[in-house]
Nucleic acid binder design. Structure first.
Lengths: 122, 122
DNA sequence: CGGTATCCCTTTGGATACTG
DNA sequence: CAGTATCCAAAGGGATACCG
């Protein structure tokens, strides 16, 4: 039994999945790998998630120490999100999961915008 | 957008997490890596999960093609579960997740029974 | 701009009892 | 032995409206 941030895990894998397993978390982490993003930018990249859910996922990621939230005291407000060192260390894991997922889905080729959520409005 | 088994995924990572993300699935897959196990054997190894949940998770894993369920038409019934080839391919992923989880949890040393769920009754 | 608040539905997980 | 059936609680996810 392992403890971290007030949560209990039977094994380290469970802890990893707890942190990465949110519906939008892999996507968020993936897009942050290239640098900082503002709240509205993330929301534009993943338009199917509403602001409440996005906020929740971002706060959990922040609480778990994988992203860093920076608030600029300006009007209008500006908030930037970026990966922490721990967050950067999950990118290889995401790549491994992506490779396995591609194998599972029978996808042989990945284009650059692989993880982009291009949801039509229709 | 990817489709498989009637489910839709925005990215392969989401598909991977969908299959591995069940509360007991990583544990089940981990224990099956060394060979076949009967239903009751799995239930003994992971005593905190009840039979309904265990059945559900096993059926989902079977539906997703990562485990193979073999029923022996005997009295009393005998059912064995084993990893498929796809299932075997997730073991490295579990190891990667385990390593990352250990790093996250600050665990430096893994003992042999790492993933064993040793839940006391107290 | 970057969120909260409220309400609500669905999914997940579980306790208990029962069965071929 | 290997499950089902039933009922139920908690968590996850989401639509809409509002706020500093």
């Amino acid at each position: 039994m392992y403890e971290k941030n007030g949560k209990s895990y039977y094994c380290p894998v469970e802890a990893a999945l707890d942190i990465l397993g949110g519906k939008w978390k892999p996507l968020i982490l993936w897009y942050l790998k290239d640098g900082k993003l503002r709240f509205s930018e993330i929301n534009q990249i993943i338009p199917v998630v509403n602001s409440k859910m996005l906020t929740k996922q971002l706060r959990e990621l922040e609480k778990d120490g994988v992203i860093i939230r920076t608030v600029y005291p300006e009007i209008p407000p500006k908030v930037e999100y970026q990966l922490s060192e721990l967050g950067k260390s999950v990118i290889p894991i995401l790549n491994a999961l992506c490779a396995w997922g591609c194998d599972y889905l029978g996808v042989t080729e990945l284009h650059d915008s692989e993880l982009i959520c291009e949801q039509e409005n229709s």
